[in-house]
Amino acid sequence: MADRGADRSLEHSFPATPEELQGSRDCLRENLQAWGEDDRIVQDVVLAVDEACQNVIRHAYAGDPDGRIQLRVERRDGEIEVWLRDWAESSDPRCLERGRDLDDVRPGGLGTHFIRELMDVAEFVEPPDGRGNLLRMLKRT
């Protein structure tokens, strides 16, 4: 999670539980607003990060309340880069490719679709020590 010339950055670490999501959204939202990002950019990044955190909580940690999530956000001219780290079992990187047919109206399965729609890049990369998962997302601003 290298800081490649970021003029602003945020690092936030929190337990991987549903109860922590509101606080993590508030933290991210407040920082993006303080950095002067447009409302639409703030909304898009907050929703995409929230959905990615949900995937970690529900699927990677499978509800294990002892898991942790580490969020790092770096702002550069023209882009916001997000790194989301967990220490769960490795995720199948193909899970980001699976969308669902939106004409099939049914509950569930929308989170990955939101991430792909809202961010310009979403990809799993190799974590520094090979443990867990590291999701990189990029939003061009």
Binding site: R25, L47, E51, Q54, P107, G109, L110, G111
Partner: peptide, 9 residues
């Protein structure tokens, strides 16, 4: 604010 789980509900 609503997320995918809220939409599912």
């Amino acid at each position: 604010y609503i997320d995918s789980s809220g939409i599912a509900s």
